[in-house]
Design a binder for these strands. Sequence first.
DNA 1: AAAGAACCGTTGTACTATACAACTGAAATC
DNA 2: GATTTCAGTTGTATAGTACAACGGTTCTTT
Lengths: 178, 178
Amino acid sequence: MSDAPTDAPTDPPREAPDDVSPHVPTDAPADPPREASLDVIQRELTAFARRARAAAARVHPEIPLVSYTLLSHIEDRRGCRATDLAAHYLLDKSTVSRQLAGLEKLGLVERRPAPEDHRVQVLHPTEAGLAVLATAQANRRAAYQERLKDWSGEDLDRFAGYLLRYNAAGPDGLPDPD
Amino acid sequence: MSDAPTDAPTDPPREAPDDVSPHVPTDAPADPPREASLDVIQRELTAFARRARAAAARVHPEIPLVSYTLLSHIEDRRGCRATDLAAHYLLDKSTVSRQLAGLEKLGLVERRPAPEDHRVQVLHPTEAGLAVLATAQANRRAAYQERLKDWSGEDLDRFAGYLLRYNAAGPDGLPDPD
DNA sequence: AAAGAACCGTTGTACTATACAACTGAAATC
DNA sequence: GATTTCAGTTGTATAGTACAACGGTTCTTT
């Protein structure tokens, strides 16, 4: 995404969630409020990304962190290749290679050369890998539940829908390969 | 935030934005849909953070990147101190110190010892710093406008509101210091 | 089928972003 | 005035990445 949040973090939740009129958006000239919303979205998304990053390091002391993301994808797409991961996450091959090396050393993934194509490595989570994922997943879920406990089901639903829609535009506004 | 997005990236926009029923949330038992929404939110937020990070590096080749975030805050809070930045972004003093050193070397910020307290450094953006910020801000805004061009004003407004609300919980679910 | 192109993954090297700990200087407290 | 506390810097270490150069493999093309 060419709109990466990388700035304008000034201070996210400074103006309470009210200054974003929940209803009078398309009434007036329609353009000013639109821009205001865009700015808020940009700023908040940025703030989120920045904090997420910082927090990430604190949350998974057990596993080298980003490897975790990859492990998760490996579980989801059993038997995927390193190249798939790189393409999916917009990472360099070398980065993935090293992350996988780490995961293997930790005994969380197995990589076996594919029988059909000897260049390719087929990736699978190990028992340990699955266990780690399960635990972390549970922790995360609990954290989100706590953070969003005051939200109505309807709000959660809509928020989820918006996020899905936002992300659906793909990594760079592109159709999202993969 | 203990809910840091650090995993379950499997593949964000895989299920179209429709499988999140936009209206029938609080009707049924109310619990299953809630959990589903939570999972989606968790996953999408995670996906966003991951990609944002990757994209960030591609978007601001000009300036060492994260420094950008700090510069932005410095503009917003003229005359703030390095410690303020550290506290605000949950960064170590040393990290901020080095980032600022970089920004100063690039001529984007000035730091002067405060007259009243000789330990403190008062930070100000330079002309060049303001110019860089303005340019980047324009780029970002354009990118967001493009990405969200198909959204209705009402949806933008609501999405902005949700993000604000989400972030308002603070870096860790805490009352958000600062 | 031999040559060349395309591919997959690894390794060397370099850089950003961070953290933690130790240290210097300058208030503030006692 | 001695101690503690606070602001920033510097040393050292680590994660995460990228890019470029390779070493095998497989697919294409003559």
